[in-house]
């Protein structure tokens, strides 16, 4: 029996193509080779999946999902399966953060409606369970992308304020509810 985490980690989640220009290329080095780093320096994130992770958590904390477009042709996957996410970051000053995969997995387990007992009894297949997990993951991230896109539409520079992304997440902290309201204020740093 292969463990379910590994089955999940071997997968490549899908995301909607339309976010490539508006988000992926804006914040990440997505589709750029390592040797092209010079021209992409200055992007907030490195690999494309990094913004996917950010988007995923945005959806997760909002507890909101958004189904992806039906048309498979309008979806894309990353070059790297989940199992490699956060392992290597070639940029100076970055650290690996592979541990985050376990938390994503844990969150998916917590939030996905799966009959784990049936799985253990052999009544359903592991594959169907992983499908459900990946689906949930994609839908959370899709909501996150939508969220980011909306912010960018009202202010294209919004996320270039140093703590803009951080504020999105701290706004979910119970004692920090007001932060999100302030996020269009100029950064005082």
């Amino acid at each position: 029996m292969e463990i379910i985490y590994d089955l999940w980690a071997k997968r490549n989640p899908e995301w909607e193509k339309r976010y490539q220009d508006s988000i992926m290329n804006v914040f990440t080095d997505y589709s750029k080779g390592v040797n092209q780093y010079k021209e992409v320096r200055g992007k907030i994130f490195g690999a494309g999946y990094e913004i996917f992770i950010i988007a995923f958590f945005i959806g997760l904390y909002h507890n909101q999902t958004k189904p992806l477009v039906e048309d498979k042709a309008k979806r894309k996957v990353f070059g790297q399966a989940i199992m490699y996410w956060g392992n290597i970051e070639t940029r100076i000053g970055r650290n690996s953060y592979g541990k985050i995969r376990e938390y994503i997995f844990a969150a998916l387990v917590a939030r996905t409606d799966i009959d784990w007992l049936a799985l253990d009894k052999g009544d359903i297949t592991a594959r169907s369970v992983v499908d459900a997990l990946i689906n949930k993951m994609e839908e959370y991230a899709n909501f996150g992308f939508d969220f980011i896109q909306e912010k960018l539409e009202s202010n294209p520079n919004h996320f270039f304020q140093e703590s803009a992304f951080l504020r999105v997440f701290t706004s979910f902290l119970s004692n920090n509810k007001k932060e999100e309201e302030l996020d269009d204020e100029p950064d005082d740093l």
Binding site: I53, N95, Y97, Y103, R111, F165, L166, L173
Partner: peptide, 23 residues
């Protein structure tokens, strides 16, 4: 770097405890 810390320092998990609890 606040953006990198979201991932490198797992700051993105700051609201995670409740979800972990669910899990």
């Amino acid at each position: 770097d606040y953006n990198h810390s979201l991932l490198d320092k797992l700051w993105v998990l700051c609201p995670f405890p409740s979800i972990f609890n669910e899990f």
